[in-house]
Design a protein around this nucleic acid. Structure first.
Lengths: 199, 199
DNA sequence: CGGCTTGTTGACACAGTGTCAACAAGCGCC
DNA sequence: GGCGCTTGTTGACACTGTGTCAACAAGCCG
């Protein structure tokens, strides 16, 4: 927590902005949106409150950047999936998803459930974009075209299932990873076989 | 919108409380949590702002009552499901769910996604209770025991799928009701047949 | 060592929340 | 009908949090 009570120091804009953003990510991740004031962020960064507004404009804009950071996911390694049969590929994508979400558990799950303010138009847009990305990854991993409205919508639905199931595992602890894995692969195969053909 | 600018009128506590609550339900449903002030609610009810605090204590407590109202669902008619075979019962429960959620579309979907502040402990608890109720209904309709941790957790996951899928239908309009119906019944049957046995 | 750019600060105005003593609507009693 | 009492209702007050902005000074350049 080294609070560096030294004299005021002059940093390059990018460095200062980054420093404040990191503090905000930590605080918003721990408590909610409402329970963190811009003053808390400023104090955490050892900086005047006005500077937060100077760099991010508004508390909500700062929060938008924060959830953008939280929802940004490596996304790598997924493209090079083994070109095996469908059940194997489904298994791989589910494992990958569970790895990612368990590594970032608090921040990712917290952010995807809106970490403090769903219903807000801008926040919803950012979250929707993250879900879109995840849906794209599911579709490509399964070997289906990313375009096509209904298909993509169904993939988003599946991401919703994956999210709520992961929450049962990581936050409530009422499911084991094995059970989650089984649930997500079985439903994914069902959707690919029986439901997607309608789209 | 009759704003009854008449003299101050004295109402029975229950009546006044109810009146304020209805205004709050409408306002919180339209805009979010943050975009509605207690002053807005008071003005909408033609009442002094202090009276809102008198009846509900805090803005957050008022909001808790609001989402409790929004999430309260007839729940009737479901118990008397035809004792048919599993696919038929799954069909019935899905139809019932889609009817309910489409009737209350804005308020229910808005509230279940936390209408303005997920991450808050108390709000999350109320929402979790509503999901529990829905999970109970799914389990009983399918003819499985309501108790048993893992089973119930999986039912909650399914409710998460149902919610996100309904949102694709009602809010984004990228799925038809028939597609949603097909998706939800197929996945429900898969879960009952292949996944629930693990619990 | 000046001077200048600009990162940084602190004070200001304002909006929203919760509290509380004081007010008055309307019922019951005579 | 008038009077008083209960209690629903009000408006002012103190406080916290947000956004703005002119003034300040850190640190480079000559």
């Amino acid at each position: 927590m080294s609070v560096d009570v030294g004299q005021r120091r002059r940093l390059e804009p990018d460095a200062r902005r980054e420093q404040i953003l990191l503090v905000a990510v930590r605080l918003f991740g721990e408590r909610g949106y409402a329970d963190v004031s811009t003053g808390d962020v400023a104090r955490g960064a050892g900086v005047a409150r006005g500077l937060v507004n100077h760099y991010f404009g508004t508390k909500k804009e700062l929060y938008l950047e924060v959830i953008r950071v939280m929802l940004t996911v490596p996304a790598s390694a997924l493209t090079l999936l083994p070109p095996a049969d469908l059940p194997t590929r489904a298994d791989s994508i589910v494992s990958w998803f569970l790895d990612v979400v368990s590594r970032h558990s608090t921040s990712w799950l917290g952010a995807i459930t809106a970490g403090g303010m769903a219903g807000d138009t801008d926040v919803d847009r950012v979250i929707a974009e993250a879900i879109d990305v995840a849906a794209d990854q599911v579709l490509t991993a399964v070997g289906l075209p990313v375009h096509g409205g209904a298909l993509h919508a169904m993939a988003r639905s599946y991401v919703g299932l994956a999210t709520s199931t992961a929450r049962e595992w990581l936050q409530r602890g009422d499911l084991t990873r094995a059970q989650v894995h089984k649930l997500l692969t079985a439903t994914l195969l069902t959707m690919v076989d029986q439901v997607f053909p309608d789209a």
